[in-house]
Amino acid sequence: MIYDKPPITIEEQIAKLQERGLEFDNIELAKKYFSHISYYRLAGYWWPMYKDKDKKEDKHSFKPNSKFKDVIALYNFDHRLRMLIFDVIEKIEISLRTKLIYHLSHEFDPWWFEERSLFTDTQSLTKTLFKIQEEVERSKDVFMKEHKKKYKEDLRFPPSWKTLELTSFGSLSRLYGNLKNTVKSKDVIAEELGAVNHTYLPSWLQSIAQIRNFCAHHSRLWNKNLPGTVKLLPKPPYRWINDVPKQHEFKYLYVHLCLMRYLLNVIEPPNKFDQRLKKLMEKYKDNVDPNALGFKDGWRQEELWN
């Protein structure tokens, strides 16, 4: 089959949705939204409003009482959720970067991240170093310009305390996860972040890095199946949840939010992540189904979230 649908105007987009049963209170306001937010970006928020969406003969007709204003409410909720999460991840990223630089530079030397003998998968390391090289070359930071000017005969990367300051969270998490388990700093960093040892922290960081990328690219988090999975500590040394999600529930955001809260409690105690998340959920309680994010009944009473 060849795709042959032509583009349609904003007025035609709204008319199509009306024909399918989506209710609009203010057509002019709706036109303004569609002029700034694309049809298919908003489609992710009205998709659950379809009835029988898996049946080919049903052409995406909406359930009764489906309203465009609720679509916009979900869109706004998702935006605020991403901003909240991005702020939390920033603190986790800075902490991880600091610990990698400090512990591994002291255990080995400032160029430990180039030492292939320290890593399990050298092919993966090559790819990571290529990304880091791109980030370093792209940098306009004064300290990097001065380094290149002063040490132009030194063909190595700048030392870790300069290079890794420019490195993305994804590359940092890959460096950490790829370290051999015999590297002492790998366990030290995990212990300092409350993850006990190297067994658990790599999957946490990989998950958080994926979610960070969704936030950075303005991708939908609400009602999204996350691709990553995580290994959970059987007996965490700090506050955790009693009602722990099962493996099949790891595709939802809730368990990953719990891990972020757990790490943030170690990195920045006290913090207001719990208050800000509860306030956001309360504000949109008439629009947001907590189950679409994997929230458990009674999550507000969990010790982790208090």
Rank of each mutant, 00 (worst) to 15 (best):
I2W: 13
E11I: 06
A15C: 13
E19Q: 11
E23I: 15
L29E: 12
F34L: 11
R41G: 04
R41V: 04
W47C: 14
K51D: 00
D52I: 11
K53I: 01
D54P: 03
K55L: 09
D58N: 14
D58G: 08
S61K: 15
F62A: 00
D70W: 01
H79Y: 15
R82C: 00
I85E: 01
E90K: 14
I94H: 06
K99V: 12
P110S: 08
W112I: 08
E114Y: 03
F119I: 03
F119W: 04
L125P: 05
K131I: 11
I132C: 07
E135K: 13
K145G: 06
K148D: 15
D154L: 10
F157D: 05
P159T: 03
R174Y: 08
L175A: 05
G177V: 04
K180A: 09
K180W: 02
I189F: 02
E191H: 15
E192T: 10
L201I: 05
P202K: 03
W204M: 09
L221N: 05
L233R: 11
K235D: 08
P236T: 06
C258N: 07
C258T: 09
C258F: 01
C258I: 01
L259N: 05
N265G: 11
D286W: 08
D286P: 12
D286R: 11
N287Y: 09
N291D: 14
G294D: 00
N306L: 07
